[in-house]
Design a protein around this nucleic acid. Sequence first.
DNA 1: ATTCATTGTTTGTATGTACAAACATTTGTT
DNA 2: AACAAATGTTTGTACATACAAACAATGAAT
Lengths: 154, 154
Amino acid sequence: MYVQTFVIYLLHQMENCKSKYCGCLYYSANALARIMTKMADEEFATTGLTSSYAFLLMTVCEKPGIQPKEISHHMQLTPSTVTRLIEKMEYRGYLKREHIGRTTAVYPTQLGEDLHPKIKEAWKKLYQRYSNILGKTEGDKLTELINEANERLE
Amino acid sequence: MYVQTFVIYLLHQMENCKSKYCGCLYYSANALARIMTKMADEEFATTGLTSSYAFLLMTVCEKPGIQPKEISHHMQLTPSTVTRLIEKMEYRGYLKREHIGRTTAVYPTQLGEDLHPKIKEAWKKLYQRYSNILGKTEGDKLTELINEANERLE
DNA sequence: ATTCATTGTTTGTATGTACAAACATTTGTT
DNA sequence: AACAAATGTTTGTACATACAAACAATGAAT
């Protein structure tokens, strides 16, 4: 009886899992991240930006003059990564930098501000899209659980 | 009373969340993936490999002669990514390829096989490490939830 | 006031990953 | 038997991200 339960558990595992690494959080988290990034990029495609750049622009539009350090905090990326993202967005004409002492203030350009509503729209659509698949409540719950885990693991 | 409850909810949200994007699965999933990859790389450091390469070597050692396509299935990576990983591991002397018709068989070298136990050990440690932080049951549960989401979102 | 430590930002360099296109082989169809 | 479609693999190229080191400005301590 005991053994039988275990066998059923194993079978269930194998059914549901594409890979023998499904029991590993490192693996599952990365798979989810790849799937979500792809989905996000698809939704943000209407804005001409990929997901990271869209998030950056949103962040700056909602707090013009924000510093890279704060951006890196909001986006949970390293400062160097943020610099790289900003550079590219400056080159493309969506953001501009103003150096003040050792700090830097980042502002949206007119072009950037014009794009802001479209990005927020795409963001909403992204949310709706995965909520449709996972169920709104379940999706929110999963997100919250992941956030809690992030807090503790860091 | 109703409003108060909402305010408490908001405060709770702000406490627990580093970023205003914490309600977005794209964002949270990517943050978790980065944290876990870092942790995995730290654990696998004892083997001289980063996590992806360690997983690749494990996969090949457990099924010598496996084809890239099957590897890409196990690891949930695109075939081109798998080719790149294999190439590097071949260059480093851990794997070798044998081309048979249009397919390719991948084998571990002696060097690769020698490393296998160490990798499995590191993998176990990785599991223990995040289980210690999240709690074994909770960690497993989270992993399972993410797997289910992956299934459905794909 | 000068030096030393700290902090915010940027570079140099490397890595993992993907997409699209190219190749090579096998299978199916007529 | 010849050609077309499908399949497995590899290349060319690009991108997001990170780490470590460099740089630049501020603040603190003697």
